[in-house]
Write a protein that binds this DNA or RNA. Structure first.
Lengths: 340, 340
DNA sequence: CTGAAAGCGCTTACAG
DNA sequence: CTGAAAGCGCTTACAG
């Protein structure tokens, strides 16, 4: 591999000039610049990021930490962030906190600390105090996507309102017997879906003066299969069942719809279902949902990081809304209750 | 941040000894070793990977290149690889070839070349000759997961046999009118599902002396929604329809099952469906499939890389099968055809 | 077993 | 605008 010296020699300039010409930092005559680019091209020169990072303190590498990548939301956030970063010549290094505790510890104590990252994006993570402290000690920009990190710049959707909106939709159709399917405590922590979604649900019912039936407050593991089981039980209860359900994720809503169908119920006539997410499959299931565009969230997190790194002009203040925009998508999984 | 010098000073030894004690390379008295570890711990020292890499030429960082991360197979490969890597103190840097051509070019011409990676894992990628040449010029270990890269160590499942097996299953149930749903050419290239799956299908039919109906050779975009459309059309054809279908992915098989149900057909009695993948949702759909364990494939790729890097003992020759093991999973989406 | 020193390939004040 | 030189924080022959 040719080094910067080879380029300098071939271009007939100093190493310093090559560095300046290639990086764009500092003044270089256009003659020198051309000679350098020409020489670099001829040699197939690519600079060593390790050396560059060591000398400059900038790595052009962003760390992303998430609890899993194989769930819909995370995979899409990751996809959006990678593309946005690669486009800028940045790398994305991926860390996963799932699995054993010692792996998670390794991530926070070692991997993230190794001075190889310019910034870190956490995704729906709830960090322990030492973990957060650790991260902040590095003095690198930190942006959170979702999650609950005090004093960290966070991009998030308005979970409370999303839930309230979905619930109001059902109420406005005439439903009064409405169930809610959220995450189990375990998952609420890992995926850090704050209680906001449940709160929004209860708030909307409260506003409509409908009493919450505690039996109809369910939770599952955010998988389609887990939701299927729960909703099957719910709908099989001979002592009466709800006419509608709000799910904290689309993947769970799919399970709910499948469970209802397998019991011979018609969705939406016998049972209405609302999801939250905007999963591609929603179309097929006819799922009414609130879309949250995780791909765009991943991109937004990258742009925010770039602003913090001074690589990009900050978004004008007025343009930065408190919450990431979401969108109500009406399809065919909701209708007035049978008796209405 | 404290540096190696601080540790050396505090431990009362030289920088060289600290390096040796911490890395485990070279001889160090146990007294020195203890002093160094003690000092490092007190200072909260974490070594700079950039400096370490520059000096040693080893980055403890593996690149993974895939066409997308938001499809089931890829997300799971990624998850398996990250965990396996992080466990060894390695980082995973993710590259995505989807999107515009210039992004793909950037990945191959710049990102991968920057000397920051010890090795590269490609996932179901078909590289152009220059791309492959580029990658090989770096002289770093290269392992492929699936895909068609000549002269590259590849971990792959036996696509031909998988398809043949699924088809034989249907034939043995008595089906003779069997359709196949593969990928469109565009996706066959990106996801590099070789024609092997179609070949296996045709081979099995041929063995059973069944003629392939060209009208029943379909392809879609590997999504559930795409498959749904295709299969809906297929099954709506008044001039007769197949009694069974082999799908090149489980996600497509789900779409096929949904399409059949929406047309009022009973799966499996009116229409049998077989998938390929082992997607978690297969259980819910009762999908008969051939499971290929992408999470384990990701882990296997990492282990292979570690062997090539000399970090791990090579698997004894006899233990390394030509193909990654797969598993036939019989569920309830297949049954003898109605008339049988 | 240990240390002084060269060197990895860049960047960036500094002086011109 | 340009170059000589110091320095980024490590690793590793080399000599002891």
């Amino acid at each position: 591999m040719s080094s910067i010296k080879d380029v300098a020699q071939r271009a007939g300039v100093s190493v310093a000039t090559v560095s300046r010409a290639l990086s764009g930092n500092g003044k270089v005559s256009s003659a020198s610049r051309d000679a350098v680019h020409q020489a670099a091209k001829e040699l197939g020169y690519v600079l060593s990021y390790n050396a560059s990072s060591l000398a400059s303190g900038r790595s052009r590498n962003i760390g992303m930490v998430m609890p899993t990548v194989s769930r819909w939301y995370y995979a899409n956030v990751l996809q959006g962030a990678t593309q946005e970063l690669n486009e800028r010549g940045y790398d994305l290094t991926l860390y996963n906190t799932s699995g054993e505790q010692r792996h998670r510890d390794a991530v926070f104590q070692d991997l993230l600390m190794r001075q190889r990252l310019d910034a870190v994006i956490t995704v729906t993570l709830k960090l322990t105090a030492p973990e957060l402290h650790q991260l902040q000690a590095v003095k690198k920009p930190l942006v959170a996507l979702g999650g609950l990190l005090p004093q960290v710049q966070t991009i998030r959707v308005d979970d409370f309102n999303i839930s309230a909106l979905g619930t109001e939709h059902l109420i406005s159709l005439g439903h009064r017997d409405i169930a809610f399917l959220g995450g189990t405590d375990e998952f609420n922590i890992d995926f850090c879906l704050p209680s906001a979604r449940l709160d929004g649900f209860e708030y909307a019912l409260d506003q409509a003066e409908i009493r919450v039936n505690p039996q109809w407050l369910l939770n599952a593991d955010f998988t389609t299969a887990g939701a299927y089981q729960k909703v099957r039980s719910l709908l099989s209860n001979p002592r009466g069942r709800p006419t509608a359900l709000l799910c904290a994720s689309d993947e769970m809503a799919f399970g709910a719809i499948m469970a209802a169908r397998d019991l011979g119920l018609n969705v939406p006539n016998d049972f209405s279902v609302v999801g939250i997410d905007g999963h591609e499959l929603g179309d097929l299931f006819g799922l009414t949902t609130i879309a949250q565009h995780p791909h765009a969230q991943g991109e937004a997190a990258v742009r925010r990081i770039m602003e913090l790194l001074g690589e990009e002009d900050p978004t004008p203040d007025g343009a930065a809304p408190e919450f990431f925009p979401t969108e109500f998508v009406l399809r065919t999984s909701t209708a007035p209750p049978a008796g209405a």
